[in-house]
Amino acid sequence: MNIGWTREQRAARAAKELKDGYYVNLGIGMPTLVANYIPDDIEVTLHSENGMLGIGPFPYEDQVDPDLINAGKQTITELPNTSYFSSQNSFAMIRGGHFNVSILGAMEVSQEGDLANWMIPGKMVKGMGGAMDLVVGVKKIIVLMDHNSKSGKPKFKRNCDLPLTGRHVVNLIVSDLAVFERKSPERRFRLVELAPNVSIDHLLASTDAEFIF
């Protein structure tokens, strides 16, 4: 018996939050998978922080262009509606509130929507990149994560122990066990879906945060 959602199923679940005409930023890792599950009947424009709207699929070998990469430094292609711009403009559109959704990974999320996803003290820190700008600027922040860390500790907690990326910024959590939604101006998350074969007892035992259900 499989318990919970796979990475692909979580990506597909997050894709259901997208609507026709949305401008969307996808973070590196699991969030990138969401691009594979955008329903055919809607048009969504994907953004890359390094200065592009309208990300196309990965190139065929003979199409590879070193001048055309995404924020994860992967080679990509353009679409008929693609536009390019500077980093400064790219973050002006983020901070200015022009994006509908950003889907990001997380190390920890607090019960009031704080996000920690950039730094583990004592380990080499690579930097926050664009994450801090995205979480304050984008209207809806969706987090895709494992419900528990590799060592089994809850990642959805009363308070984040790790340094924050942003305060009160997460609106939806899609983990392998459940979906939680926090509609502003509410402070707490509400359980909206439980993954297959996950009991409420299992969820409560795996969670350190208080939530409404």
Partner: peptide, 13 residues
């Protein structure tokens, strides 16, 4: 010195 990417771009702008 780490700067959020958008803050870095805007500081230079």
């Amino acid at each position: 010195e780490f700067n959020p990417q958008g803050t870095l771009a805007e500081r230079i702008r």
